[in-house]
Design a binder for these strands. Structure first.
Lengths: 118, 118
DNA sequence: TCAATAGTTTTCCACATGGTGAACTATCAA
DNA sequence: TTGATAGTTCACCATGTGGAAAACTATTGA
């Protein structure tokens, strides 16, 4: 319970930074990337990228495996699934089908209540 | 484009804190809440809650409207929709194709039912 | 009018974050 | 062996975040 919250904290925190989201998007397209390949598109220096990778790693969103002198970074998507599941709670607000069904259900309920003179 | 990124930054940042997520959940269930009613379940003091509300407000996730001396806080779910849409990119990693087909079929069925005056 | 209630603002604190430059380790290749 | 390449670590800085206490404003009800 508490741990679950903790994990969500880290996940959302990791997703906060645009550089980190860009890294995740890159890994969604590319599957396996070296650290310097990941860093190349950005204006920031390697140590900064390193820190972002640390945050992503601590959030359980990437794995790092060393072969020779290069480190391969891979996406671990599971934590994002939990984040999405948390957000799904709010889907009813923008999903028209569910909206209308909910409105209908509400109207029915209201009618019932009225009908029973409450 | 840049603004969009900015908005997502704020959204994910707002979702990072468990207190803020709890506030959003409360507003999902309750629709309209006063500041002190929102603050009541937490161990932290009012000024801290105030700061959380500021963050949520800056992220466009809640509205505040004053009537008399009480301020009513309401959920604005739209930014979370954008966050979900960003995350949907990764759905393919955990949603087998059949799941998506099932969801589609379910939606179709619901549409049919509605069309027939349910 | 006066006290209680609802919120806000201010000042302060400890700590996290995102960045830098410089120095370091480890591996590959000439 | 020696130099380039890949990555890491360290010390530092400015800024942001989450919290508290205290003092404040504004509204309501007795």
């Amino acid at each position: 319970m508490v741990n679950y919250q903790h994990a969500l904290d880290r996940t959302f925190a990791a997703l906060t930074d645009p550089t980190r989201r860009a890294i995740l998007m890159r890994l969604e397209a590319e599957e396996a990337c070296s650290v310097s390949a990941l860093a190349e598109p950005f204006a920031i220096k390697l140590p900064a990228v390193m820190k972002h990778l640390d945050v992503l790693h601590e959030a359980g969103l990437v794995s790092r495996s060393k072969t020779g002198r290069t480190v391969t970074v891979r996406l671990i998507p599971e934590p994002m699934r939990d984040a999405m599941e948390w957000l799904e709670r709010y889907q009813r607000f923008w999903t028209p089908r569910l909206d209308r069904l909910a409105a209908y259900a509400e109207a029915q309920e209201a009618a019932m209540v009225k009908g029973h003179g409450l």
